[in-house]
Design a protein around this nucleic acid. Structure first.
Length: 142
RNA sequence: CCAGACGGCCGGAUGGCCGCCGUCGCGGCCCUGAGCGCGCGGCGGAGGAAAGUCCGGGCUCCACGGAAGCACGGAGCCGGGUAACACCCGGCGGGGGCGACCCCAGGGAAAGUGCCACAGAGAGGAGACCGCUCGCCCGGGGCCGCGAGGCCGGCGAGCAAGGGUGAAAGGGUGCGGUAAGAGCGCACCGCGCACCCGGCAACGGGGGCGGCAUGGCAAACCCCUCCGGGAGCAAGACCAAGUAGGGGCGGCGCAGGGGCGGUCGCAAGACCGUUUCCGGGUUGGUUUCCGGGCCUGCCGCCCGGGUCGGUCGCGCGAGGCGCCCGGCGACGGGCGUCCCAGAUGAAUGGCCAUCGCGUGGGCCGCAAAGCCCGCGACAGAACCCGGCUUACAGGCCGUCUGGCGUU
RNA sequence: CGGAGCGUGGCGCAGCCUGGUAGCGCACUUGACUGGGGGUCAAGGGGUCGGCGGUUCGAAUCCGCCCGCUCCGA
């Protein structure tokens, strides 16, 4: 699976408008289906946001780096193909232990990804596939 | 040993696993190119402030006459350094500190205008409230005294020492002088003027003259001297793609298509020729005047619209380090050596281990040592450089000052 | 990258240019009018003038440096 970076402002706005979102102590995750994307083999694109509320430039860059590290750790195994994600840093992103940050992201991915298909009635086949894969992954974790 | 002053420097170290950006090499892939979003390996990869964006430059484009003036903004003791500066160095003057040392926007107030609230008599060629001194009050203003006289009051003249107001009262202190006083005179200090000496200069020193005229504020207006053309790497250049044979206005021109006419041909078409038409004005009339009219072309301006991709700029520089020489120093010169970030939703990270430093807590209310747990400053290059300013855990080195103790 | 503005009682604003007294409205407290509320009237309390320096006898005001906020242009 290839993970690309979301770079255009309009992409961020589109994801924010159409997204399933989920908030954890360490981060906020938004997800939306990529337009004109093949569900099974499309790429995954991830955008990172750290607003001025996080702190100065050093704090913002560090927050995005921790989020990138967490994404590289979690996404390849459990991300939904053909989806755009936006990961938003929160105040606790800097201080939260890295394992907890990974847990936040994995939990968010499970909930947001599982519900992504419900919003698009014409894609029930893919939604079913997602559910079955999520169920299998949870069984594997257990 | 304690307290302090100044200058310089560092901004944890080592290793492992997984990653990021650039570059080089080898390989891989395809749609063979502005190739790649692929794999492996080597090398490089944030700061002293990268920050704030307060100054000064380089660079690029625009304007232009290598000009001057006005306006506006800035600089402002002297000399030096520098590409330049509001920076730096060395001096001078003033202020503070026992001292090392620190601080100062530090030109002009005898060019002009303005301001100096309240208080106070008076706030700028000033003034007299309480005062000080003298004279007079007419055969005598009041009171006391035997009297000389004293005290009080009124009027006139002189004065500004003392009191008082204020941030500031028109030189200060002392002596002389005087009815009382006053630079009225003298000495010293301050101020001013010219001279002499030292210094490149700011300025310092000296003796002399003047005899107070010249209060403060220019971070009030202002005057004087000097400096400044404008914009900024989103500068600017190129490539690709695309609206698009876009629209409007003006000019050039009558070239091509088109139109019209003719020849050939069944036809498609080919060839030749031609460049105009309509309305109005004026006139005896016209090739003249005015207005309007098919498409394309070339030039200029404007509008609308599109793109917001890539490459260059963009990393050899007022460059770093070492040594030598000149200089009190800032700095300059020479030689050697090194190549040292280049991203663009923006690269140095995530996790772990060991060691070191500081600090908080606990074991542990004698101390030392040890062990365990936790925490670690300000802050991220965005075209580049020289400064300034601001932020900063902790630590190191050197020089110097004051005090205490010991010899 | 370039430029402009703002910060004053709890809130919204004057005062700053031209330096000496910080004022207005709402709100707050007390009292009166009313049976009570509202409302009106009268009296009153409350401000490091964003921070630190400097100039001045004296600074909210003038100058410099910081902090925070807002806006504009490319």
């Amino acid at each position: 699976m290839r993970i690309a970076t979301l770079k255009k402002r309009c992409d961020f706005l589109r994801v924010r408008a159409a997204a399933r979102r989920w908030a954890a102590p360490g981060l906020v995750l938004q997800a939306a289906p990529m337009p004109d994307a093949d569900a099974e083999e499309g790429p995954v694109r991830v955008g990172y946001t750290a607003s001025r509320r996080i702190g100065n430039a050093v704090a913002r860059n560090r927050a995005k780096r921790r989020l990138r590290a967490a994404v590289a750790h979690v996404m390849p195994a459990s991300a939904q193909c053909g989806c755009d994600y936006v990961v938003i840093a929160r105040a606790a992103t800097l201080t939260r232990p890295f394992d907890a940050l990974i847990g936040d992201l994995a939990a968010g991915l499970a909930r947001v990804g599982a519900r992504a298909g419900d919003r698009a009635p014409g894609r029930s086949r893919r939604a079913a596939a997602v559910r079955s894969r999520e169920a299998g992954r949870r069984a594997g974790d257990a």
